[in-house]
Each structure stands twice: as C-alpha cells, then as structure tokens.
C-alpha cells in the first residue's frame, strides 16, 4: 500500500466530495476572489506594499529601470488571482474546465487559419468569463496567454499579454456576475451588445495594454510624442483584433455558451 500517513479521512471525505458534487460552494460565492475577507485584505496590502517598494527602488536606480519596474507591477497585478486560485485548492472539474477553456482559446486561431490576422483568442476568453464569472475569466485569459507563450515562445511581452487578456476576461466576467449579461442563451440584441462590448474591450483595453508593452520595451526614451506614436501605430492592429473578436462572439457566442450550459446540465458540472 502507498503511504497513507497524512489526512486519512475515511467516509467523511467521500461525503464531503458528494456534497461538493451536489451543491456548489455557497460560502465562496459572495467573495470576489473566493477568499475570506482577511486574506483579501492581506493580499491587497501586500500588493500595494510591493508596488511602492518596487517603484522606490526603481526611482533610486533611475535610467531605464521603469522597464523592469513596469513588468514587476504587471506581475503584482496578476499574482493575487493566481494565489487565490492556489489557496482555494480547486477540485478536479474546476481545473479541467479551466484547462479546456484555455486550450480552446489557444487553439482557436487554427479554426480561422484561412483568414489572415484573425485572432479569436480574446473572444473565447470573454465567453469563458461570461459562463464562469470574473475571477475564472481573468484566470482563463492570463493562463491562455502564458500557455501560448510556452508553446510559441516566451518573451518580455508575456506578462503584459497575461494582464491584457486577463483584464479583458475579468471585466466581461464582471458584467455577467452583476447580472448585466446572462450566462447563456443571449437574445439577439444582447448578443450584439456583448459583441460590441467585446470589440470595445479589445480596442480600448486589451490592445492598449499590449501597446504599452511595446512602448516600454522598444522605445529608448518615453515622451508624450513617443507614446502617442506607439498607440496610434497600434490602432489599426487593435481595430482588426477587435473586429475578429466581434465576429467570433457573434458567431460562436451562443453555441459555445449553450454547450457549456449543456455540459453543466448533463453532468451537473458546476461553475468554479
């Protein structure tokens, strides 16, 4: 027999699992990261403190240290979501659903292989966010970006991509969490609204975050003109990206949400 020293619980653990299968975690639903209030505060303070220290040290170093400081700040922004995910000790189905949505987001480009510059990843992340909520939406976005980095090559842009797609997913998920967007079966009007929302999120949030990365990594000196030049140069790319997102949401929105709902119904799969 394998070592069974730690945590042999017998029937209790089975019963706990059964409870988990039958009823979603009621306790967690209220809190935004699935954590207790004190832990959330502790995490918030840690993030702020770390940011202040980083900025102070960066200022001390001077020169081009904002390059490093900005990346560190981005990592601080992402970290709480990951830490919360770890502390939650997610169940098998939650991990699987997350992995499936991320893999779909990474692979989705292949389905549109015949259309140049068509990037549907942001749209898939947003759909996952609508179905699963803000915190899972952020995770799907960030993990998809990280995974696509691991597959196609990591670079200095990877943390920025994680933040950009995470934020896009998180915001869309927030709309669903507060009830503005239903979890599935969007009416035609709502579908158009969500797709337009997706377009705007990409053009105004996801794209600009990626452009900020370009600004910090490529530009020698950061001046208002340099910034303006980078953001303007990025605009056409972002518009195309936004249009692809819009088209994907319009086309795959309801089918994908419907399928998630179908699986949830057929197998009692729960919302993480």
């Amino acid at each position: 027999m394998p070592s069974m020293t730690n945590g042999e619980k017998g029937p209790d653990s089975i019963r706990q699992q059964e409870e988990w299968r039958q009823a979603p975690d009621r306790k967690r639903r209220g809190s935004s990261l699935g954590l207790s209030r004190s832990r959330r505060w502790a995490m918030g303070i840690a993030v702020v403190a770390a940011s202040i220290v980083t900025i102070a040290v960066g200022a001390q170093l001077g020169g081009r240290s904002y390059y490093l400081v900005s990346v560190l700040l981005v990592i601080y922004a992402i970290a709480p979501f990951f830490i919360a995910f770890e502390l939650r000790r997610p169940q098998a189905r939650e991990v699987v659903v997350l992995a499936v949505m991320c893999a779909l987001a990474v692979v989705s480009r292949v389905a549109f292989i015949w259309i140049p510059h068509f990037k549907p990843m942001a749209a898939i992340v947003m759909l996952a966010a609508i179905a699963l909520g803000a915190r899972s939406g952020f995770l799907v976005g960030a993990v998809s970006a990280l995974a696509s980095g691991l597959i196609f090559g990591l670079g200095p842009w990877t943390p920025w991509q994680m933040l950009a797609f995470g934020a896009g997913g998180g915001l869309m998920g927030l709309l669903a969490d507060v009830g503005v967007v239903p979890r599935s079966k969007l009416s035609p009007k709502m579908l158009v609204a969500v797709s337009t929302g997706g377009f705007l999120l990409v053009v105004l949030l996801v794209g600009p975050i990626l452009d900020t990365c370009t600004l910090f990594t490529m530009m020698g000196t950061i001046t208002p003109t340099a910034a303006a030049a980078v953001y303007l140069a990025g605009l056409p790319v972002n518009l195309i990206h936004g249009t692809a997102t819009l088209a994907t949401l319009l086309l795959a929105g309801n089918p994908l949400l419907g399928k998630l709902a179908r699986v949830q119904m057929k197998y009692g799969l729960l919302r993480p």
Binding site: F82, F85, V95, L98, A99, V100, C102, A103, V143, L150
Partner: peptide, 13 residues
C-alpha cells in the same frame, strides 16, 4: 494547481 492546469493545457493544445 496552476502548474497542473498549465500541464493540462500543454497536453490539450
């Protein structure tokens, strides 16, 4: 958990 999720994504892609 995160590491396992990533492992699974790398397997699923």
């Amino acid at each position: 958990s995160l590491s396992l999720t990533l492992t699974m994504v790398l397997r699923l892609v």
